[in-house]
Design a protein around this nucleic acid. Structure first.
Lengths: 214, 214
DNA sequence: CAGACTATTCAACAAGCGTTGAATGCGCAA
DNA sequence: TTGCGCATTCAACGCTTGTTGAATAGTCTG
């Protein structure tokens, strides 16, 4: 018996939907494709999740709490270890990014698909405003507060524009399009999240300092 | 007679497709929606452009040369004015970004939609590798070469990872999702490309210098 | 074993899809 | 005016879509 058959069908539907939505977007995937990929009848998706849109939401929700928990933990850890003066910009950004890499390292391909789905949603003018806030804004504001403390001279607008740049760099990384592989003729691999963050952390930290003083 | 009726129908189809594809993606838009938006029969799109995919490509191609021309001109201008030592990192990034803003300033809303479409394509694991290279890679390599000259100590990988960060920040800006407006509670407006670039240029330039030395 | 409850499949629906060939309108050349 | 060629619409096609209600299988309880 192959591994797939030991996973409950309800879970397999989520896995298949996660992968396909991440690659082709909400409208680019049919319930029949999802059902076929999951090895399941098309009506079963409806039985477990209701409408197509509800399935989309279920995929989006499934891993959100786990991800937020890991990030929140990383932020609090560096806040504790840095004592009263608070963590540096680098430490905060590290806490923001590294959890995304750890989840990848579990070997669960599903996480890679999930993060690509987040990138799709975050970059979409239609889905972004509808879906991102509800699950992620509260934690993002925690990170922003930490950044404000590390950069006391920064104006509100400066902090948010800098975060926007960080968020954009991250989003394109998670989308995992493989474009940088081709552009760099093999010098960079978009699937190598660790290398991406190794560069992104000092890169964006320098940007924050430049714009926000200190 | 309203302004729209003075535009040839072939053009109106491209305009409608541009706007709708940018907002909902390729599969999120039907030819009937495009035709209705353009005030045209659904069969006309097929007459002028063939299959749906060909229309998508036509929208993608229409403004590409103009955009590449403006960017190339800006790069060459700063290369000339900086003399033998070559332009600074800031000047190169400025030449990369500002043309996107100028086209916006023409008051042609179509450009805003077009740039959002580029963001959609660039961030998509499906469309990105299929469509971006053919039209944009050659010019991007020109910018990369200029950056290498301005940062002689940089390794290949470092340069490309930095470009990746710049590209991501830009992509999220062009997608124009309005998310930063909400996060910042009005301190930043995603439609304000000028403010975005005012911050993005020194931000990313500092990142380049940090990673690539100098 | 009977029964109940959940999970899963089957078969079919109305609606909407991209696409097409034939029909119509329109503007210019002869 | 006639005729021709391009632009546009009309009407319809075969197919796929999301969704649903009824039928079946599976599993546990008593």
């Amino acid at each position: 018996m192959n591994k797939k058959n030991s996973i409950p069908k309800r879970e397999r539907i989520l896995d298949a939907a996660e992968e396909l939505f991440a690659e082709h977007g909400y409208d680019g995937v049919t319930l029949r494709q999802i059902a076929t990929t999951a090895g399941v009848d098309v009506a079963l998706a409806n039985y477990h999740f209701g409408k197509k849109l509800d399935l989309f939401q279920a995929v989006f929700n499934r891993r959100a709490e786990l991800l937020n928990g890991a990030r929140r933990e990383a932020l609090h850890a560096c806040q504790v270890s840095s004592g009263k003066k608070g963590p540096s910009v680098e430490q905060i950004i590290e806490a923001f990014l590294r959890p995304l890499e750890i989840t990848q390292e579990t070997g669960d391909e599903g996480w890679r698909h999930y993060l690509a789905l987040i990138a799709y949603i975050n970059n979409s003018p239609y889905w972004g405003p509808r879906m991102m806030s509800s699950l992620f804004d509260e934690l993002v504001q925690e990170f922003i507060e930490a950044l404000k403390k590390a950069l006391p001279k920064a104006s509100e607008a400066d902090i948010y524009w800098c975060y926007h740049n960080l968020s954009g760099a991250l989003t394109l990384t998670l989308a995992n399009t493989g474009r940088i592989d081709k552009l760099s003729r093999g010098h960079c691999h978009s699937a190598d999240f660790q290398a991406a963050y190794d560069h992104m952390i000092p890169f964006t930290a320098a940007g924050f300092r430049k714009i926000c003083g200190g």
